[in-house]
Design a protein around this nucleic acid. Structure first.
Length: 430
RNA sequence: GUGGAUGUAGCUCAGUUGGUUAGAGCACCUGACUGUGGCUCAGGGGGUCGGGGGUUCAAAUCCCCUCAUCCACCCCA
């Protein structure tokens, strides 16, 4: 194999795109109903935007960035969508003129990490960012929208898990509580937990090792560390979701990896996905706008992973796609008739709005292939009609039209060419 | 980044204790069907056995390195 895809990338062929397009259409329609509009920001930004936005200590910034150094500048391919959208929002001064914005995006993200099933170095995210408000109903709306997406694409059984990380001060206080509580039991913990104790205490709560899970049962609850305002915020989100029939589970183990998250954080999981079960993640980020130079405004957002979603659909056997008939007419020109005549007919059909194609031999000599071979191509192209042009037809100024579905056949006059498509449509019409 | 598994035709896989020209099914092309697709039958094309190096009279098979994929971990969409 001379060349192969760069590690962690995929090619999406026409048949793959049938499903992908369907998912995108569902998402766009859902966004429309929620009043969100599309935004497209560059695939790369200045590196410092991500360092500032996601936090120097985050895994993504510390070891997963695709960075290009160019003279004095450093650029990084976006590892997530939020930082770029907030940067654009502030740069355009929307925080001053039209603060409340619901923006969505569908596009590629890049992270330099070890690929695994459902995890690539280039991957597509479908994301929403609602900027300019602290309203907990927007958190509920975002979660509901994301979960509805999975309902509508037919992926049942997705579970919404929410948690609150409080505001900055709540979180710092809680980290302190957690350290004080975990310190004496470090020797009884797994190696990873001892590392987490130093690096990110919160992650200890998410440990899967049995002995650690037992210890975690008596861990302090972040909900107890929340200020009354943060607590009320979470309660409002949960209650609003229940009011619209969206089941949610409050899960103190939900701890997200970017520094910008405050208060509400959530993930949508699919139980059949194994270790990589999250199909969507998001939360509130109430200081990022000001952090990046804007006003002090709240915001909430999420990102859905397209590949994990497709993987989940495949596991449920719901990823089969029906390949539609995309071609109307396939024109076969027989030996003895110049192929240019077929070219003219195809052109007339295309101008009339039909999807039409001509049979093309591999060689450049322009010899027509056998009718059998051309018919086979017509069948494989999933054409509705085969339009045949041989010496007999040419002499009578007609074409033979075969409806490949009903297997009925008729001869119709070639002229006038401008209305030939109507006569073709009549062959085998129900 | 850590640990483990895998890698033979376009696809799914056989390949006996290392032993001559590496096989099957599906797919593809051609023919039976001398102007007609899907079914059937017959024939045909297609492989540096992921790549490189080594051991050996001899390597798809044994050893080392490398690349890629998958699984678990870290983390995450």
């Amino acid at each position: 194999m001379a060349y192969q895809r760069a590690r962690g990338t995929r090619d999406e062929f026409p048949d793959d795109l049938i499903l992908i397009d369907r998912l995108e259409r569902v998402a766009r329609d859902l966004f429309r109903r929620y009043g969100a509009r599309e935004i497209r920001t560059p695939f790369f930004e200045e590196t410092r935007l991500f360092v500032r936005g996601l936090g120097e200590g985050s895994d993504v910034v510390s070891k997963e960035m695709f960075t290009v150094e160019r003279e004095e500048s450093s650029y990084t391919f976006r590892p997530e969508g939020t930082a770029g959208v907030v940067r654009a929002y502030v740069e355009k001064a929307l925080h001053k003129t039209r603060p409340l914005q619901k923006l969505y995006y569908i596009g590629p993200m890049f992270r330099y990490e070890k690929p695994q099933g459902g995890r690539q170095r280039q991957f597509t995210q479908i994301g929403l960012e609602v900027l300019g408000s602290l309203d907990p109903l927007l958190d509920a709306e975002a979660i509901h929208l994301a979960a509805s997406f999975f309902d509508e694409i037919g992926l049942s059984g997705v579970e919404a898990r929410v948690n609150s990380m409080g505001d900055r001060e709540d979180l710092e206080a809680f980290r302190g509580m957690l350290r004080a509580w975990a310190q004496p039991q470090l020797s009884a913990r797994c190696e990873d937990c001892r590392m987490r104790f130093e690096k990110n205490v919160l992650r200890m709560l998410d440990c899967k090792v049995e002995q650690c899970r037992v210890l975690n049962a008596s861990a302090p609850d972040i909900l107890d560390a929340l200020t009354p305002a943060s607590r009320a915020h979470l309660d409002t989100v949960v209650s609003a979701l229940r009011a619209v029939g969206r089941p949610v589970r409050v899960d103190p183990g939900i701890v997200r990896g970017f520094d910008y998250y405050t208060r509400t954080v959530f993930e949508l999981h699919h139980p059949d996905l194994g270790a990589r079960s999250a199909v969507c993640g998001g939360g509130r980020y109430d200081h990022l706008i000001s952090e990046l130079g804007g006003s002090d405004l709240g915001a909430v957002g999420f990102a859905i992973g397209l590949v994990p979603t497709i993987v989940a659909l495949e596991k449920l056997g719901k990823a089969q796609i029906e390949i539609p008939r995309e071609l109307d007419a396939f024109v076969c020109v027989l030996e003895g008739v110049p192929r240019q005549h077929g070219f003219v007919i195809v052109d007339a059909l295309r101008n009339a709005g039909l999807a039409a194609d001509l049979d093309h031999p591999e060689g450049a000599e322009g010899n027509a292939r056998s009718l059998k071979a051309q018919m086979k191509s017509a069948d494989r192209a999933r054409a509705r009609w085969a339009v045949m042009l041989g010496p007999d037809e040419q002499a009578a100024s007609v074409v033979s039209v075969r409806n490949l579905e009903s297997r009925t056949e008729a001869k119709v006059p070639q002229q006038p060419l401008a209305t030939l498509h109507e006569r073709i449509r009549g062959v085998g019409a129900a």
